[in-house]
Computed example of a mutant assay.
Amino acid sequence: MWTKLVSTTALLTAVTLAGPLTGAAHAAPTPPPVGGDSLGSRGLVKPAGIKAPPKTKATSYVIADHETGQVLAARNAHGRYLPASTLKMLTALTLIPKLDKDLTVKPSRNAVNQEGSAVGLRSTPIYKVDDLFKALMMSSGNDAAMALAETNGGLDRTMADMNAEAKRLQANDTVAKTPSGLDKPGQSSSAYDLALIARAGLANAEFRRYISTKTAKFPAPKKKFYEISNHNKLLWRYKGMIGVKNGWTSKAQGAFVGAATRNGHTIIVSIMKHTGYFWDEVPELLDWGFTARGKVTPVGRLVDPLPVQAPVQQAAPLVSGPAVAPSGTSAAQPLLDHAASEQTATSRTLGSAAIGGGLLFGLIWLGYGIRRRRRSRL
Rank of each mutant, 00 (worst) to 15 (best):
A332V: 11
P326K: 06
P185F: 14
T22G: 03
T178D: 13
A14D: 10
D130N: 04
W288V: 12
A14W: 08
S180G: 14
T151V: 07
H66M: 12
L87K: 07
S347R: 04
A77Y: 03
P32S: 13
D143G: 05
D131C: 07
Y277W: 15
R199A: 05
R80Q: 15
M137V: 02
N204R: 03
V269R: 01
A14I: 07
M137P: 00
R237Q: 15
L194Q: 12
K239P: 01
L336Y: 15
A353R: 02
Q309F: 06
D193K: 09
L378E: 14
A216E: 09
R373Q: 15
W288K: 00
S60A: 05
A195Q: 11
K88D: 12
L99K: 03
V15H: 06
G300Y: 00
G43M: 02
M89S: 07
V303Q: 05
V6F: 15
K223I: 05
L132P: 01
A10T: 13
F278L: 10
A111T: 12
A111N: 07
S117D: 06
A315W: 01
L235G: 01
G358W: 06
V244A: 09
S212I: 02
P317N: 01
G120V: 09
A220T: 08
D337V: 01
R168P: 07
H338D: 12
T158F: 09
P29G: 03
M1Y: 14
M241W: 03
T151A: 12
L103P: 11
Q114T: 02
A310Y: 03
A316I: 07
A48M: 08
M138C: 08
S41M: 10
L286I: 13
T86R: 01
A216M: 01
G240R: 04
H274V: 10
G201T: 05
V257D: 10
V45I: 09
D100N: 14
N172M: 15
G367F: 03
S212H: 06
A48D: 13
R157S: 06
S188Y: 11
K223N: 13
R375F: 02
V244E: 10
P317R: 01
A24V: 14
D102E: 05
A24K: 14
A164W: 08
K167C: 10
G289T: 01
N152A: 15
A354H: 10
S212V: 05
L21M: 06
L95R: 04
L366W: 14
H66N: 13
A252E: 02
L87Q: 14
L363R: 00
P221C: 00
S117T: 14
A353I: 15
Y226V: 00
R42H: 08
K98R: 13
A14C: 13
T9L: 15
A353S: 09
A354M: 06
F361C: 00
Y192K: 08
S190M: 10
Y192D: 11
V15L: 15
F278Y: 06
N110F: 12
Q313I: 12
H338R: 15
R157M: 09
A191L: 06
V308L: 09
E165V: 00
G181E: 07
G240H: 05
Y81A: 02
H26G: 08
V312W: 03
A84F: 11
